[in-house]
Structure formats: C-alpha cells, structure tokens
Design a binder for these strands. Sequence first.
DNA 1: AAAAATACAATCAGTCATGTCTGTTTTGTT
DNA 2: AACAAAACAGACATGACTGATTGTATTTTT
Lengths: 228, 228
Amino acid sequence: MALSRTRTTRTAKPAAPKAPPAKNGGTTLQATKAAQTRARLIDATVRCLVKHGYANTTTPRVAEEAGLSRGAMMHHFENGAALIKATIIELHEKRLRAFRRAAEKPEEHDVDTLVEVYWAQVQKPAFIAFHELAVAARTDKDLGAILFPLQEEFRERFNAQADALFPEWRDAPVEFDMAMNLSQTILEGMAIAVQTGAMDKAKVPAMLAHLENQIRALMPWHKGAAAS
Amino acid sequence: MALSRTRTTRTAKPAAPKAPPAKNGGTTLQATKAAQTRARLIDATVRCLVKHGYANTTTPRVAEEAGLSRGAMMHHFENGAALIKATIIELHEKRLRAFRRAAEKPEEHDVDTLVEVYWAQVQKPAFIAFHELAVAARTDKDLGAILFPLQEEFRERFNAQADALFPEWRDAPVEFDMAMNLSQTILEGMAIAVQTGAMDKAKVPAMLAHLENQIRALMPWHKGAAAS
DNA sequence: AAAAATACAATCAGTCATGTCTGTTTTGTT
DNA sequence: AACAAAACAGACATGACTGATTGTATTTTT
C-alpha cells in the first residue's frame, strides 16, 4: 500500500465525502448506504491484510475483495492512505469494544476464562491485521504517525479499565501491572510466534496453563508471596 | 521484494555463479572477492530490512545501500528472490552461531546473564530483519517454503543444544521445556512489542527480572516445587 | 601476451500500483 | 417530472520495480 507515495502533483483534489454531516433533521438520509460501503471496504482491507499481508494489500485488490470498482472505492476514500487510516481506527475501536465487552461479563472474571478469551482474541483476523500494520508502521513514518498514538491510547485505556475492573488488586499495583504485562506479552507474542512458525502450536496449552498459574501466584491474597 | 513475480517469460536464464567450485588446487583464487561482494549485498539487505521493512526492500535500494550498481548485483544473485533467500540462510546460520557461541562460555550459564544475552540478541538488527521476513513469509508462499523449514530446524537444534548444555535439568524435561518456551516467547514477544509500540520500553526491566525468577522457580533442585 | 572468464555498469521493455479524470447510473429532493 | 447530488465504473498518465540484454574493465588462465 505504501502510504503517501511521492506526490504526483497533478491538479487539486476533486471531492472527498469526508464527514457526512447528516443533513436532515435527526433522521439520517440514505447516506447510511455510504457508511455500509465504507464498512465493506474496511472489512475487505482487513481480509486482504490477513490473506496477502500489508505489502500486497493494494487498492485494486481491496476493491476486488469488496466487490467494487476501484473508481467507486476512490470515491469513498480518495486515498489509499485514507483507507488504511480508517481501517486502523476501526481495528482500534474494535479492540476497545472487545475489551469492554469482556469486562462487562462479571461471570468471566476468573483467571482461566480471561486468559482464554484474550487468547481467542489474538488469533482473530483483527489482531493479525493489526500486527501486520504495526510491523509496517515500524518503518513507515506516516503509518506510524497514525498507529503509535493509538497504541498508546490503548495501553492507557487498558490499564484504566483493568484497574476499575479488578478492585481486588488495588493494594498490589506492582503485581497487577506485572500480571497485565505478562499476559499481553505472552499471549500476543505466542500468537505471532505461531503465525510466523517460530513456535510449535503444540506448546500452546502448556503455556496458557502456566500463565494462568503465574497470574494466580501474583495475586496478593493468594497463599504464598508473589515473586519479583 | 515479492519473491518470484509472475514470470515475464522472455528467454532463458543468462548465467548464474551459483557455487564457486574453487577450481585450483587448495588455493582459492581471487573469487574471494565475489564472496566478499555477496556478503556485502546480504549485509545491505539486512540493513534495508531494518530501515525500510520487507515491503520497501527493493533491488535498487539494496544495490544503493551496498554501493553497487543494480547490474552488478544481478550478476551475483540473478534474482531478487535469490538474494533474500541467501539473506535468510545467512541470518539463520548467524542465529545458530550466536547460540553456539553463548553456549561455549560456561561462565555465562547462570540464569541472569543468559536472559540478558538473549534479550540483547533479539534487539539486534539480525532479529528485526528475521522477524520482518517471518511476517512476510506468512502470506508469501515462496518465502515460507524457505523460511519455515529453517524455523523448525532452529527449534530442533535449539532444544538439542540446550539439552546437552544443561545436564542439571535432565531429570525435569517438562520444566526445562517450559523454561525454554517461556524465555523465547517473552523475550522475542517483548522485542517485537517494543519495536511496534505495543509495549512501553519502561516495562522491560521488571519483565526481565520476573522471567529470571520464573526460570529459577522452575529448576527442579530449587526450593519450592515448580508450578504447572 | 592472447584468450576466456568474471566483476561491474548502464539501459530497455514489461508489469503493476497509484492518483486523477471523465463518464454513467442510481437515489433523493422539490 | 425535473434536477441535483451522490454512488459507481472505466480509462489514462505517471512512476517504480523487475528481469533481461548489452557493453566495459579487470583478472585469471594457458
């Protein structure tokens, strides 16, 4: 995709339906169709990222995957960059939604199910696509300018939400922080390792079990003091 | 780079100095220069992977980075694919060498230094470049055909070497395996997370310390039984 | 020293992705 | 029904990378 290629410098920009202002009173007009098409394009982008990787996620391929002509696509997004920017934001918000949703189920607040929920999460297309973008952002300045602030925002919200969600850990902030970092690092790292062939899939269950034990051992009210 | 683009189907291949057979007796001719140039090109490829990512590691850029003309480069490698294949093999062997080197220093066999050595390793350009290739290999069939077998070979050699290296763990193979997987997953995962902005660098020292404690806790002769 | 081979440079045609432009159809407003 | 605006489709020009070809200089061989 290569965000913001060296400017072709032709003329001015034609027209971009940046933000549909929802003209009419409170009722939204059929411009909801536009939103649907945009969503379809973003979805197609995610699929392309998963199937073909960031490098081969080209505008023609996304259009084809979405079942649209490239011209139509450019009408909705104007730029390839705009498309992936929208995709990043969508993935970011999806991550936050998924996290919030899991948080709202108090019956899943035990360590085991929480770990398994997160593990299931990092195996979904959304995570793979996001990592594809994150890797690209390492060397793409423009992509990084979009992605890195969101990564930081996610970390912040993650911590805040988690803190509000587990009052039991309040008096052990250090252990809590460690448990969170451990979980993120191990689960996300393992997902990537499996995807890239660096790790044997067969090792996963034991690792999950060990992580769960680790978290339990970090609980301040748990028998036996926490390590570190 | 995109390994093996759709064949242009022009004519036959011109000439490829595949394996310099070292004609003369035992003395090597000045074709050592060729080997040097090849090494320079591979080095330039690694630098390009780190600086610009796999997607933007193009043949002109590598040639420029190596201070060579593209024509000269094509003389040595014929294909862009051949170049990155050679780069992969070089990185693979470098990984094995680094591991063997660390293994040959018996004074560094304590947990702390071993973790720190591995941590230093995964921050080097070689690891970043390798991960860049591994991510690309996920969606590039040809790249995967080269890379995945090497990943598996590395895992095998890693385990065999580690087993031979730490006889103290012999009677606790399960814990040993867990310690190895934990170390790899956490250290490599953390390196990637830091690079892609998914993790705050400030969290690293605490994670390293925790990992070291974890490994110690898994030692069978350590006071206190191992978890999981 | 002549011949063969190799390291290197420069250029060319092909393919592909990108952004832009010009049309056509559909939809919504009045 | 008329008109405007949006959704959509196709085509064009530009630039970039790729592989191939040809040409030159430096070695090595005999």
